[in-house]
């Protein structure tokens, strides 16, 4: 419950405060969000499986975000940023899809 509250608070803060992100980091925000989404759904599924652990969640979240951003940054330096971010999104998308499917099975038992 606190976790959900934190999430909503974060969204509101982001929308309200409109903190300016450095231009250099701007291209990596969307990919970081997708990576974070993967960690969040992974955590949610683990929670429903009853094996959730806060430490693992924090570490997976932070590492997901950083690695995703790093890969895209590397891709940009090599001139294949667009293609690489597509690849990252495909992989993360597949993971999110299957995690969400598992969550659905838990929620609807189907």
């Amino acid at each position: 419950m606190i976790a959900v509250f934190g999430l909503v608070l974060g969204v509101l803060a982001g929308l309200w405060l409109e903190p300016s992100i450095p231009a250099a980091l701007q291209p990596y925000l969307p990919i970081a969000v997708v990576a974070a989404l993967d960690a969040v759904f992974g955590g949610l599924r683990a929670h429903l499986d009853g094996i959730f652990d806060d430490k693992v969640f924090v570490i997976s979240f932070v590492s997901n975000v950083l690695i995703a951003a790093l890969i895209v940054y590397l891709g940009d330096q090599l001139g294949v940023g667009g293609q690489l971010s597509t690849g990252v999104i495909v992989v993360l998308g597949i993971r999110i899809f299957s995690n969400v499917a598992a969550i659905r099975r838990h929620v609807f038992h189907a």
């Binding site: 606190i2 976790a3 934190g6 999430l7 909503v8 608070l9 974060g10 969204v11 509101l12 803060a13 982001g14 929308l15 903190p19 992100i21 925000l29 969307p30 970081a32 969000v33 974070a36 969040v40 955590g43 806060d54 430490k55 969640f57 924090v58 979240f61 932070v62």
Partner: peptide, 17 residues
């Protein structure tokens, strides 16, 4: 930490949107 991370996530989500 988990709550903080979620907060951060929310922030990123909002910002990205």
């Amino acid at each position: 930490g988990a709550v903080a991370v979620l907060l951060l996530f929310g922030l990123m989500l909002g910002l990205a949107a």
